[in-house]
């Protein structure tokens, strides 16, 4: 391997192009057939804590029915058998119910973490998991700021369980199971942009009933699930320190430095090798 000046500039130039186009691709102009991200607005002011959504979710996804229900003082978590749970919280405005499930981030950490593209942000907004691709490394679980992907530790062919926003149902034009069945209208499915407008309208029209914040609007760079609450979100046990920019942004700098290092470092090493070889010869003379 012999690198002369011209070759060196060629390599350097190619690296530059790779770095520049890499950035351009991310910010490519919108295509006309782009679909808007869909999401779900959850209004804990309207939720009566019936936990019917837990049953409907189990029905829709072929999971076991939950054995317990929301209870004040108990924090239930989603697990490998249950994709959504409703918890009861004692707050300054009495008992408030909170539904938890995957947040379907606009830029999901799990999707960026996944090295086989098993965790996948669909064009419609749902983050889904694809069985045939996953190798079970659980890096999605390490990366998710909401701890939502759940793993079947006691299976020889384990799957990752998490809410998929009923991707298959919505593909057929239906609503997600929990939204469709909610008897209190606490859940609303639609384009994320419209949901944000609706959430703002509710806050403006009933300022005494709603806390003035939409959780999920900016959290983790924006999420598909949006939350309204009568009380500050700390009281509901939400992580309010979560960063406002997306989580994949944390690794972008590192990822984009790989190609230049991979290309330029060998050239540098070869150069140093040649230089020190020369020096040794001189010393021998």
């Amino acid at each position: 391997m012999d690198i002369n000046r011209r070759n060196f500039f060629k390599i350097a130039g190619l690296t530059g192009v790779a770095v520049a186009t890499g950035k351009q691709l991310v910010a490519s102009p919108e295509k006309k057939d782009d679909v808007e991200f869909y999401g779900i607005l959850y209004d804990s002011v309207l939720c009566k804590g019936c936990a019917g959504c837990e049953i409907d979710c189990a029905d829709a996804n072929g999971l076991e029915y939950p054995e317990d229900g929301p209870e004040v003082g108990v924090v239930r978590k989603t697990n490998e058998k249950q994709r959504t749970v409703v918890n009861a919280k004692e707050t300054s405005k009495g008992v408030v119910y909170v539904k938890t499930q995957c947040m379907h981030c606009n830029e999901p950490a799990c999707g960026t973490a996944c090295l086989t593209q098993a965790m996948h942000k669909t064009r419609e907004g749902a983050v889904i998991w694809r069985e045939d691709k996953c190798m079970g490394c659980r890096y999605c679980m390490v990366s998710c700021p909401f701890d939502m992907p759940k793993f079947e530790y006691h299976s020889t062919n384990p799957v990752i369980q998490k809410c998929t926003m009923c991707y298959e149902l919505t593909q057929q034009g239906e609503e997600p199971a929990c939204v469709y069945n909610c008897p209190n209208g606490a859940l609303k499915y639609g384009p994320r942009r419209e949901l944000l407008a609706e959430a703002r309208r509710r806050i403006v029209e009933h300022p005494d009933e709603y806390h003035d914040h939409i959780y999920g609007e900016h959290e983790a760079g924006g999420t598909g699930w949006l939350y309204l609450s009568p009380v500050p979100f700390e009281e509901l046990g939400f992580n309010t320190n979560i960063q406002k920019s997306s989580y994949p942004a944390l690794t972008k700098g590192f990822i984009s430095s790989i190609a230049p290092v991979d290309i330029l470092l060998p050239a540098l090493l070869l150069g140093v090798h040649e230089a020190t070889k020369q020096r040794n010869h001189n010393e021998e003379e």
Binding site: L115, T116, C134
Partner: peptide
Amino acid sequence: LGRPLSIINVIIGNNYG
């Protein structure tokens, strides 16, 4: 790895993450 055989996806597949 929970599903060690699928590591092949990383090596040959069209699923490069």
